[in-house]
């Protein structure tokens, strides 16, 4: 199936000379939730802004639903809803007026029933006649989402949708995003919360220094790059790892009270039984053992650092 968004060799160099995007190519499939991860200044917002028409690309092409965002910008933009990172609304307008304004701006005829349902879904119906300046931060963010969804877009960009919102609202946002996906909306979100991507995204892209360094299905990336760890709580602390255990590349933690063994969960042989046997032979006792898998955050940090090292 043709991707709903196809980005080819997209580059952006700002007037000041900063190269924010460097030949980025990326396909977004219809109906998926795609999370774009990256440290501050990696180019996430520039990428979204270029696709949505807020920033003019220096080179490259972007197709949204098969429409070029420059030559066929009207058709392309009509498909896209954008929730920017900053809460920018007309403080003196009512919720009802500003959401209907957004719908009109995108060329859609008024639809009271749709807007009413949208506001109800976002728990804003009771506030429809309130001025935006009277709303809480969380409500304002929901107004931004309502504006972005007012014209029934097929693609929704959420730039840091849960930045600075409390845990409860974050959970309700996640539910909202899942609900939108069930209705067939393709969602591209940027986030600093790796947990958010791990929880929701079908695929994850990592961007660093204006370049996409990895794009994978979330499960696949966890499987491929995820490490498991075995932590042994020792009965007696040790100062150094004995040479006899060198082949397992163990690390000491908690001032010598814990022995940590990292292994690849996908390997046929994890090396755990032989490690435990060798420890028994050496008379090293342990009181407890625990295994854990690395989170997407660990993978993300590892990826970003791995990319930084050669340049350093």
């Amino acid at each position: 199936m043709q991707p709903i968004i196809s980005i080819s060799n997209l580059s952006k160099t700002y007037d000041g000379g900063v190269r924010a995007l460097n030949s980025v190519s990326l396909d977004i499939e219809q109906g998926e939730i795609f999370a774009l991860l990256g440290p501050n200044g990696a180019g996430k917002t520039t990428l979204i802004s270029a696709v949505c028409g807020i920033v003019t690309p220096t080179s490259g092409t972007v197709l949204a639903g098969g429409h070029d965002i420059i030559r066929g910008y009207k058709k392309a933009r009509a498909m896209i809803g954008l929730v920017p990172q900053e809460i920018s609304t007309d403080a003196f307008e009512t919720v009802w007026a500003t959401v209907n304004f957004s719908r009109g701006l995108f060329g859609k005829a008024g639809d009271r029933a749709y807007i009413e349902q949208l506001l109800r879904d976002l728990a804003l119906w009771d506030k429809k006649d309130a001025k935006i300046m009277e709303l809480s931060g969380g409500m304002k963010r929901r107004v931004m989402i309502a504006k972005a969804l007012s014209h029934e877009p097929e693609i929704l960009f959420l730039d840091e949708p849960t930045a600075g919102v409390d845990v409860e609202l974050r959970r309700s946002m996640w539910n909202l995003v899942r609900g939108l996906r069930e209705r067939g909306v393709t969602i591209i979100l940027t986030t600093h919360y790796i947990e958010e991507a791990e929880e929701m995204a079908d695929r994850v892209g990592v961007i660093r220094g204006g370049e996409i360094i990895v794009v994978e299905e979330t499960e696949a990336i966890m499987r491929k790059l995820g490490k498991r760890q075995l932590t042994l709580t020792l009965t007696e602390a040790m100062e150094t790892v004995p040479d006899a255990l060198a082949e397992w590349h163990l690390e000491l933690a908690d001032e010598g009270h814990r022995l940590v063994y990292s292994f690849d969960a996908n390997d046929e042989s994890t090396g755990i039984p032989s490690l435990l046997r060798r420890m028994g032979d050496l008379g090293i006792g342990f009181a407890d053992l625990d295994t854990s898998k690395s989170s997407l955050e660990d993978i993300f940090v590892g990826l970003v650092n791995a990319q930084q090292e050669p340049a350093a």
Binding site: C52, I54, L82, P84, S88, D90, S102, F106
Partner: peptide
């Protein structure tokens, strides 16, 4: 000034 210009720029408006 308020940042709402993003909406005009991302709308299908010539």
């Amino acid at each position: 000034f308020s940042g709402t210009v993003y909406e005009m720029l991302s709308a299908p408006m010539s």
